[in-house]
Deep mutational scan, measured.
Amino acid sequence: QWKVGDKCSAIWSEDGCIYPATIASIDFKRETCVVVYTGYGNREEQNLSDLLSPICE
């Protein structure tokens, strides 16, 4: 189960590419979260089910 502060990978809606991110907040009722893309600072809402394991850098 994901928690705030977890590192993950998420698909950015603008280009469909996968980027490393950190979970900033979680809404368990809606099963969504807000991620912050590492190195970019962009925030975006994602479905918890769409999150991927962190990418090894």
Rank of each mutant, 00 (worst) to 15 (best):
Q1V: 07
Q1F: 11
Q1A: 10
Q1W: 11
Q1S: 12
W2P: 14
W2S: 14
W2Q: 13
W2A: 14
W2Y: 06
W2R: 13
W2F: 07
K3P: 15
K3V: 12
K3E: 14
K3T: 09
K3N: 11
K3Y: 13
K3Q: 14
V4Y: 09
V4K: 01
V4G: 11
V4A: 01
V4I: 06
G5A: 04
G5W: 09
G5F: 08
G5M: 03
G5K: 00
G5Y: 07
G5T: 03
G5I: 06
D6I: 10
D6Y: 08
D6R: 00
D6N: 00
D6K: 00
D6G: 00
K7Y: 11
K7P: 10
K7M: 12
K7C: 12
K7F: 11
C8P: 00
C8A: 00
C8F: 01
C8I: 10
C8K: 00
C8H: 00
C8G: 00
C8E: 00
C8W: 04
S9A: 13
S9M: 15
S9Q: 12
A10H: 02
A10W: 09
A10G: 00
A10S: 03
A10T: 03
A10I: 08
A10R: 03
I11R: 15
I11V: 12
I11G: 01
I11Y: 08
I11D: 02
I11T: 06
W12L: 04
W12E: 01
W12H: 04
W12S: 14
W12G: 00
W12T: 03
S13G: 07
S13I: 07
S13T: 08
S13H: 07
S13V: 06
E14G: 15
E14W: 14
D15A: 05
D15L: 07
D15T: 10
D15W: 10
D15M: 09
D15N: 11
D15V: 05
D15C: 08
G16T: 03
G16P: 06
G16A: 05
C17Y: 06
C17N: 15
C17K: 15
C17F: 11
C17P: 01
C17M: 14
I18M: 07
I18N: 01
I18V: 11
I18W: 07
I18A: 06
I18C: 15
I18P: 06
Y19N: 02
Y19C: 01
Y19E: 02
Y19S: 03
Y19Q: 02
P20M: 12
P20V: 11
P20N: 14
P20W: 12
A21M: 06
A21I: 12
A21N: 00
A21D: 00
A21Q: 03
A21V: 09
A21H: 06
A21Y: 07
A21W: 09
T22S: 04
T22Q: 07
T22M: 08
T22W: 11
T22L: 10
I23R: 02
I23D: 02
I23S: 04
I23H: 01
I23V: 05
I23W: 04
I23E: 01
A24N: 04
A24Q: 10
A24T: 09
A24F: 14
A24Y: 14
A24I: 15
S25E: 10
S25H: 05
S25I: 10
S25L: 10
S25G: 03
S25P: 03
S25Q: 06
I26M: 03
I26D: 02
I26W: 04
I26V: 03
I26N: 05
D27F: 11
D27R: 07
D27I: 10
D27G: 02
D27E: 04
F28N: 08
F28W: 15
F28K: 09
F28G: 06
F28Q: 08
K29H: 11
K29C: 06
K29F: 12
K29M: 12
K29L: 12
K29V: 14
R30L: 09
R30E: 08
R30H: 08
R30T: 11
R30S: 10
R30K: 13
R30G: 07
R30M: 10
R30F: 09
R30A: 12
E31W: 12
E31K: 14
E31T: 05
E31C: 10
T32E: 03
T32V: 10
C33E: 00
C33N: 00
C33V: 11
C33T: 00
C33I: 08
C33S: 00
C33D: 00
C33W: 11
V34K: 01
V34T: 03
V34G: 00
V34M: 08
V34C: 03
V35Y: 06
V35P: 00
V35N: 01
V35I: 12
V36T: 05
V36M: 07
V36I: 14
V36S: 01
V36P: 01
V36R: 01
V36K: 02
Y37D: 00
Y37Q: 00
Y37I: 01
Y37G: 00
Y37N: 00
T38Q: 05
T38F: 09
T38S: 09
T38H: 09
T38N: 05
T38W: 12
T38P: 00
T38D: 15
G39N: 09
G39W: 14
G39K: 10
G39H: 13
G39T: 09
G39F: 13
G39C: 13
G39M: 11
Y40E: 01
Y40W: 13
Y40I: 12
Y40R: 15
Y40P: 03
Y40V: 07
Y40F: 14
Y40C: 14
G41Q: 06
G41N: 10
G41P: 02
G41M: 10
G41K: 07
G41S: 07
G41V: 05
G41D: 03
G41C: 07
N42M: 14
N42L: 14
N42C: 13
N42P: 02
N42G: 09
N42K: 10
R43G: 03
R43A: 12
R43M: 14
R43K: 10
R43F: 12
R43W: 13
R43N: 02
R43L: 08
E44T: 06
E44Q: 07
E44N: 05
E44R: 07
E44A: 05
E45Q: 11
E45T: 13
E45P: 05
E45W: 08
E45M: 09
E45G: 04
E45I: 11
E45C: 08
Q46V: 11
Q46F: 08
Q46W: 07
Q46N: 04
Q46E: 05
Q46M: 08
Q46K: 15
Q46H: 13
N47F: 13
N47I: 05
N47Y: 13
N47A: 10
N47G: 03
N47Q: 10
N47R: 15
N47D: 05
N47T: 06
L48R: 02
L48Y: 04
L48E: 04
L48H: 03
L48A: 03
L48T: 03
S49Y: 09
S49Q: 09
S49M: 07
S49T: 08
S49P: 04
S49A: 13
D50S: 05
D50W: 11
D50G: 05
D50C: 08
D50N: 06
D50Q: 05
L51Y: 03
L51D: 01
L51S: 01
L51F: 03
L51T: 02
L51W: 05
L51C: 05
L51V: 01
L52T: 01
L52I: 06
L52A: 02
L52M: 12
L52R: 07
L52P: 03
L52G: 01
S53V: 10
S53P: 15
S53I: 09
S53G: 11
S53T: 06
S53Y: 11
S53K: 11
S53L: 15
P54L: 09
P54K: 08
P54F: 09
P54M: 10
P54W: 10
P54N: 05
P54I: 10
P54Y: 09
P54G: 08
I55K: 04
I55R: 11
I55V: 11
I55S: 09
I55Q: 12
I55G: 12
C56E: 15
C56Y: 15
C56H: 14
C56T: 15
C56P: 15
C56G: 14
E57H: 12
E57Y: 13
E57N: 11
E57F: 13
E57V: 13
E57M: 13
E57C: 13
E57D: 13
